[in-house]
Amino acid sequence: MKLRLGLPKGSLQEATFNLFKQAGFDFTIRSRSYFPAVNDPELEVVLMRAQEIPRYVNEGVLDAGISGLDWILENEADVVEVADLVYAKSTSNPIRLVIAVAKDSNIKEVSDLKGKRIATELVRVTQKYLKENGVEASVEFSYGATEVKVPDLVDAIADITETGSSIKANNLRIIATILESTTRFHANKDAWADPWKREKLQNMAVLLQGALRARSKVGLKMNVPGDNLDKILDVLPAMKQPTVSQLVHSDWVAVEVILDEKQVRDLIPALKKAGAQDIIEYPLKKVIP
């Protein structure tokens, strides 16, 4: 039996492949091929636009897929969320679907969009948001390069932003956020009801989430004089408790801990000052709680 999996081709492809590799799944793809080989004989992988994946998952053409919450909602796909995977093309932050207008526009808030023209790739999501806010406006599909259409072609756009840099670069101003979206590992309901496929999906989710969790953490090892151990433990954070082991034929101990990478810069000098020696920082592949 095989699990048929849809992965995004395009802007999210590299980040997705890197995540899967860290989780233990290596892909080999030939030029112009949409069917990469993978080092798991139980997987059959298809590359396609992220915009389409939820529809094919919903219809049962794919057992599961990776796509954003925004596209799941746009396709009105009735799927099972296997895991919320917080990563994007450039960052590890959620992306936002925002409404933006020209910087000098007299449109200040959503209510000012009444009777206006809005371009977006996410037509249904945008229409639903406007309806919920009691605004009647013309929402049209955009095939891309949406930012350049304001103000000559349309009055506003609803567009995805990850860092906000493209919005600013095109002299636009955000007036509202429609939704925040993260990448979702989602499955067809029939596939989820199949015991073998469900277990396969759950095991993959554990590995993918473990790989993501590891990206913000590192390991630290150090040797500490036994009489300095309490001083070291006072300054040492940890996911749970540090591992402490006695060095052979010595009154020194080895201390090992997993912690947030952002803590390390200030922590290592403090550990050195407290008496730690032979400090080693190392990257992690996966962190499974």
Rank of each mutant, 00 (worst) to 15 (best):
residue 1 M to E: 14
residue 1 M to H: 15
residue 4 R to K: 00
residue 5 L to G: 12
residue 5 L to R: 06
residue 8 P to H: 09
residue 9 K to T: 10
residue 12 L to R: 04
residue 22 Q to E: 07
residue 26 D to K: 14
residue 27 F to H: 13
residue 27 F to L: 03
residue 29 I to G: 13
residue 32 R to T: 04
residue 33 S to F: 00
residue 35 F to D: 13
residue 37 A to N: 08
residue 38 V to Q: 00
residue 42 E to F: 05
residue 44 E to R: 08
residue 46 V to C: 02
residue 50 A to G: 12
residue 51 Q to T: 09
residue 52 E to H: 08
residue 60 G to F: 06
residue 66 I to P: 06
residue 67 S to P: 04
residue 70 D to R: 11
residue 71 W to H: 13
residue 74 E to D: 12
residue 74 E to K: 03
residue 74 E to V: 07
residue 77 A to G: 01
residue 77 A to D: 00
residue 78 D to M: 06
residue 79 V to P: 02
residue 84 D to L: 13
residue 86 V to N: 15
residue 86 V to M: 05
residue 88 A to T: 14
residue 91 T to N: 03
residue 94 P to N: 05
residue 98 V to Y: 09
residue 101 V to W: 00
residue 102 A to G: 09
residue 105 S to E: 00
residue 106 N to A: 00
residue 114 K to H: 02
residue 121 E to V: 12
residue 128 K to G: 14
residue 128 K to I: 12
residue 130 L to Q: 15
residue 132 E to W: 05
residue 132 E to K: 13
residue 133 N to D: 14
residue 138 S to L: 08
residue 139 V to I: 01
residue 143 Y to Q: 04
residue 148 V to D: 05
residue 150 V to E: 02
residue 151 P to V: 09
residue 154 V to A: 00
residue 160 I to V: 07
residue 162 E to K: 01
residue 165 S to I: 05
residue 165 S to G: 00
residue 172 L to Y: 01
residue 176 A to R: 02
residue 179 L to W: 06
residue 181 S to E: 10
residue 185 F to T: 02
residue 185 F to C: 05
residue 188 N to M: 13
residue 193 A to D: 04
residue 195 P to G: 08
residue 198 R to W: 09
residue 201 L to W: 13
residue 207 L to W: 14
residue 216 S to F: 14
residue 216 S to K: 14
residue 216 S to I: 07
residue 216 S to T: 06
residue 218 V to D: 11
residue 219 G to E: 01
residue 222 M to D: 03
residue 222 M to I: 11
residue 223 N to L: 11
residue 225 P to Y: 06
residue 227 D to Y: 01
residue 231 K to E: 12
residue 231 K to W: 02
residue 234 D to W: 08
residue 236 L to A: 14
residue 244 V to I: 10
residue 244 V to Y: 09
residue 252 W to A: 13
residue 255 V to T: 08
residue 259 L to Q: 04
residue 260 D to W: 02
residue 261 E to G: 01
residue 263 Q to S: 04
residue 265 R to D: 11
residue 265 R to I: 02
residue 267 L to G: 01
residue 269 P to R: 09
residue 270 A to V: 06
residue 272 K to G: 09
residue 273 K to C: 08
residue 279 I to G: 08
residue 281 E to I: 13
residue 286 K to R: 07
residue 289 P to M: 04
